[in-house]
Nucleic acid binder design. Structure first.
Lengths: 385, 385
DNA sequence: CACTCGTGGAGAAACGTATCTTCGAAGGCT
DNA sequence: AGCCTTCGAAGATACGTTTCTCCACGAGTG
C-alpha cells in the first residue's frame, strides 16, 4: 500500500473491482484538495491558470469521468427531459407510427441535444413505474387530456411541464399548439374557392384537443355559411376503421363534393373510396388531408395536404421547457414571466403562456379544378350558398 | 417548531421552498427508522406485514417520492439505456428519417420500458458532452465502425454495450445482426429463378457493415456464378444521389435485366428510371429493394422488398443488453456466458456472443415474370451452378 | 440455567459530487 | 507599523438513498 493510497483517505475495504477514478483520486494525484479539482474542472472558483491546467491534465491521465449520478444528486439537475404521449392511450405504444409524432420527436431530440439535454421517451402510463425511477428536469407532454393525472403529479413534484397541444385544464408551465381553427377555416375557404359546394369532414371519435378544435371549427363554419354538416367519425388509432369511414362518407345520400380528412392515412383511403365510387379527383371530388408524409406528392393525383409543422413544434416546445428549467429554480413559477416575450404570452398570470404556431397548406392537384371551370359548370343544386 | 420537526434531525436552515418529503420525514412521521422505511417500501428486510403497510400508508399520505438521483448514486443503477447511431455520421441527426431506424428505435423503446428501463437517444458525437452527464446502465450502438472511440470509451467506463450490426473490432458485450450474406444470396437466387440473366446492384459508398457485407456477398456470388458484376455506388444518405445512381445503372451499356437496391428509396428511384428508359417492370427489368416501407405494396407494379425485421432486432438488442446489465455486476464479463443459450453464442470466450436474425423477402409483382416462363426459357448460360 | 437462534429493528457508513465557509499569506495603503 | 484587500486553496457539509453491521429480546433447548 503506497503513501498515495493512504493519503486518499477512506477506502478501507480491499480495493474492489476495477476502481473508477473519483474526484478524490484526482485530488490526491494532483496534490490539491477536492474543492480545487471541482473548481478547476468546472471553470469556477478563482484559480491560477497553471493550477487549472495541471489538474485537468491529471484528471485526463487518470481517465477521470465525473459521476453523473452524484452530480445530479448534488445539483438537482439531471440534464434529462421526458417526452410523453398520452393520446390514443390504450394502444401499447403506437407513437412513431404517426409521422407527426416521429417528426416532432426527432426535432425535439435534436433541439434538446443542442442545448445539452437528452430526451427520454416515456409512455403516459407505465406498469413498471418507470416514471419515479428517473430524475427528470422537465417534461414535454403531447396533448394532455383534461385533468391529466400525470401532469398533476408532475406539477406537484415541481417538474416543469410544457405541452404540445393547448391543455384543457392542466397546470402546465407553458404550451405550444397550431392554430387549428385558422387551419381548418383556411382549408374550407380554399375548397370553396376551388368550387366546392358541400364540404365533408372525416374526423375522429377521440376527445383530444386537435380533433375537438378542428371539428368545432368545421361545425362553426358550416353554421356560418349555412351548409348542413356532412361528416363521419372513427377511432383515429384504427387504420382499418379509417378506410371504412371514408367509404361511409362517400356513400351518403348527401355526398360531399369535397372532403377534408383530419388524419394522415385519410388521403389514400379517400382516394381509394373515390375510385370505388367512380369519382374523379379533383373533377368530382376535391380532397385535402392533414399529413406530414410526402407520399401525397406522388399519388395519382397528388393530394393537397396540411402540415402541422411538427419540427417547429418540437423545437419550440423543448426550447420553452429548457427556458423554464434554467430560468426559474423550481416552484414559484414567477420568473417565467420574464422569460417569454409578450407575444408568446396570453394576458395576465392566470392562464399559462402559450404560443400558436402557423400551419402550412401544401396545395396540390387534388384540391384544384383543372381549368377554371367555375364559369363552365355553374352550381346545379338549389338552396346552396 | 413541533417535536416531530425536531425529531427529524438536520434541517437547521429555515425550511426552504416547498420541501419535498424525504425518507427521513416518512421515518419520523411513522415513528420508525430510515432503514425500516427503506425496507418496507422496497420489500426487503424482514418486517411484519403490519409495519410494512403502516409505513407505506404514511409514505403515501406524505406524497413521498424517492429521489431517483440518490437511488442511482447509491445503487449504481439508473434504469437508463442509451441508443446511439453512428452511421452516416456527418449528418446532424438523420436517424428516424430511415424507416429502419425509426422502427428499430420504437421496438427498442418498447422493449426497454417493458423491463422497467427507459431509453435515451444520443448521437455518437455530441458537442455538448451530453454523454458524460448522463448515468447510463448500458448502451445500444447501431452499426459501430471499426475501432469506434465511443465504444472503447464506454468499455473503459464499464458500461455494457450491445450493437446492432456485427462489430468489426469493438469490445462489445454482444451483438445482433441480420444474416446479410444469406439475404443477398437469397435475393440473387430468387431473381435468377425468375429468369434474370444479369443482376445489377445499387449500393452505397459508406463502409458500414451492412453495405460492406451485402456488396461482398454480391461480388462473391458473381464470381461463383461467372457473371460480371454490374453495380453503381452512391452516398446512401443523399436521396438525390440515389436517383442519379439508379439512372446511371440503367444507362450502362451492359444494362442489367434485374436490380437489387440496398437502400429504402431505391425502389421508387429505379422504377422511375426504368420508366424513363421505357423498360417495363417486371417484363424487362426485375426489381427488388431493401425497405421497411409498405408503400411498395401500392406502387405500380408492387415491388418486392427485403425486410430486415427492425422490430425483432430492436427487441432482441435491448433484451440482450438488459440481460447483461442485470446478470453481471460489471467488469468481469464472465457470467455472461451463462446468460446466453448456446445457440446465441459463437464458440469460446474470444469473440463476443452474437446472434443472426433472419430477414424476410416479401415477394411482389416486380420480381416475378407474369407467366411461369421458367419452363419456356431454360437456362442458357453455361457454367451455372 | 446458560445457550443458541430467529425476529424486528436501529445506527451509521458509504455513494461522489458541488459549494459554502473559513483561513493563511502576501501585498498595498495610510 | 498596522490594517484592509485579494488571492489561492483547504475543510466540512449536504444531497437522499441503500445496505452492512450490530443490538435487544424472547423463546426454545440441552
Amino acid at each position: 500500500m503506497t503513501a498515495a493510497a493512504n493519503q486518499s483517505g477512506r477506502r478501507p475495504t480491499t480495493s474492489r473491482r476495477l476502481e473508477r477514478a473519483g474526484i478524490r483520486d484526482v485530488a490526491a494525484a494532483a496534490g490539491v484538495s477536492i474543492t480545487t479539482v471541482s473548481d478547476a474542472l468546472n471553470g469556477k472558483g478563482r484559480l491560477p491558470d497553471e493550477t487549472r491546467s495541471r489538474v485537468r491534465e491529471v484528471a485526463e491521465r487518470l481517465g477521470y469521468r465525473p459521476s453523473a449520478a452524484a452530480r445530479t444528486l448534488r445539483t438537482g439537475r439531471s440534464g434529462l427531459i421526458g417526452l410523453t404521449v398520452t393520446t390514443y392511450g390504450e394502444e401499447p405504444f403506437t407513437f412513431t407510427e404517426f409521422a407527426y409524432f416521429a417528426e416532432m420527436a426527432r426535432a425535439a431530440t435534436s433541439a434538446a441535444l443542442g442545448r445539452g439535454y437528452a430526451l427520454v421517451v416515456l409512455p403516459a402510463s407505465s406498469r413498471h413505474d418507470v416514471w419515479g425511477n428517473i430524475a427528470l428536469d422537465g417534461t414535454v407532454v403531447i396533448d394532455p387530456p383534461d385533468q391529466d393525472p400525470l401532469v398533476s403529479e408532475l406539477y406537484r413534484s415541481g417538474v416543469p411541464v410544457v405541452s404540445d397541444g393547448k391543455p384543457g385544464n392542466c397546470p402546465v408551465t407553458a404550451w405550444v399548439d397550431n392554430d387549428h381553427e385558422a387551419a381548418v377555416l383556411g382549408i374550407l375557404d380554399h375548397l370553396s374557392e376551388a368550387g366546392a359546394r358541400r364540404i365533408g369532414l372525416l374526423t375522429g371519435t377521440s376527445t383530444d384537443t386537435y380533433t375537438r378544435l378542428s371539428t368545432e371549427a368545421y361545425l362553426g363554419w358550416c353554421t356560418k355559411v349555412g351548409q348542413e354538416p356532412v361528416y363521419e367519425t372513427y377511432p383515429a388509432h384504427d387504420p382499418a376503421a379509417g378506410a371504412v369511414a371514408a367509404d361511409r362518407l362517400l356513400a351518403r345520400p348527401d355526398r360531399p363534393d369535397a372532403v377534408y380528412g383530419l388524419f394522415d392515412p385519410n388521403g389514400t383511403d379517400l382516394l381509394a373510396a373515390a375510385r370505388r365510387y367512380g369519382l374523379r379527383v379533383p373533377d368530382d371530388l376535391l380532397l385535402v388531408c392533414c399529413s406530414e408524409s410526402d407520399v401525397y406528392a406522388a399519388t395519382e393525383p397528388p393530394i393537397t395536404t396540411l402540415s402541422l409543422k411538427p419540427r417547429k413544434i418540437g423545437t419550440t416546445v423543448v426550447n420553452l421547457l429548457i427556458d423554464a428549467i434554467e430560468g426559474v429554480d423550481s416552484g414559484t413559477g414567477v420568473d417565467i414571466a420574464r422569460l417569454f416575450p409578450p407575444r408568446f404570452r396570453t394576458a395576465g398570470t392566470g392562464p399559462p403562456p402559450g404560443t400558436l404556431m402557423p400551419t402550412e397548406l401544401i396545395v396540390r392537384a387534388s384540391s384544384q379544378r383543372r381549368s377554371p371551370r367555375t364559369t363552365v359548370s355553374p352550381p346545379r343544386l338549389p338552396g346552396e350558398v
